[in-house]
Simulated assay, not measured.
Amino acid sequence: MKDSNVFLIKDFVDNNITESTVKVETTKLVAKFQEDIKKLDDDDFIEIMISCFIPDIYRDNGKKEKLYTKLSEVIVGEWWKRLGGEFIIPTKKSGTEDVELINGNISVVCDAKIFRLGRSQKAPNVKDFLKLASVKTWMDNLVKRYSQNGKIQKAIGGMVTYSSLHEWEGESEVYLECTNKDTPVVMLPYEILALLLKYKSKFKVRDLMQMWDYEKLFNNATKSKVKYWKVIDGFLVDLLDISEDNYYKEIQSYRESIIISVKEYEKIISKEIDDNINEIISKLNSFEKIEEVREYAKESLDSFVNKQHYDYIDRIKKFRKY
Rank of each mutant, 00 (worst) to 15 (best):
G85A: 05
W79A: 14
E86V: 03
K81Q: 11
Y68C: 03
T69D: 09
K92M: 14
L71D: 04
E65Y: 00
E73F: 04
L83E: 06
V76T: 14
W80P: 04
E78N: 14
Y68W: 05
Y68Q: 04
S94T: 12
G84T: 14
G84D: 06
E73A: 10
G85E: 06
I88E: 13
L71A: 05
E78I: 04
K70I: 07
Y68A: 00
G85W: 04
I89G: 11
E78K: 14
K70R: 15
V76F: 11
I89D: 06
K66M: 08
R82W: 01
S72V: 12
S94M: 11
K93M: 12
P90V: 10
G77N: 03
L71Q: 02
L67R: 01
E78H: 10
T91N: 15
P90R: 12
G84P: 04
I89A: 08
K92Q: 15
K93G: 08
K93L: 10
Y68H: 09
K92I: 07
E65F: 00
K70N: 09
E86P: 02
K92V: 14
I75M: 09
W80Q: 09
F87W: 11
I75S: 03
E78M: 12
W79D: 09
T91P: 13
L67S: 00
L67M: 01
K64Y: 00
G77A: 12
F87H: 14
K66V: 04
S94C: 09
R82A: 09
T69V: 11
K66Q: 09
E78T: 14
K66P: 03
Y68V: 01
K70V: 07
E86W: 05
E86M: 08
F87Y: 15
G84C: 07
K70P: 00
E86K: 13
K92E: 13
W80E: 05
K66R: 15
K81M: 14
I89Q: 15
F87E: 08
K66N: 10
V76E: 08
Y68T: 03
R82D: 06
W80V: 06
G84R: 10
P90W: 05
F87T: 13
L71F: 01
K64I: 01
Y68S: 02
L71S: 05
F87G: 05
L83P: 04
K64V: 02
G77I: 00
E65C: 02
I88V: 14
E65H: 04
I88K: 08
K81T: 11
L67Q: 00
L67C: 03
K64G: 00
K92G: 08
E78C: 07
Y68D: 00
I89C: 12
E78Y: 04
I75G: 01
V74A: 10
W79T: 07
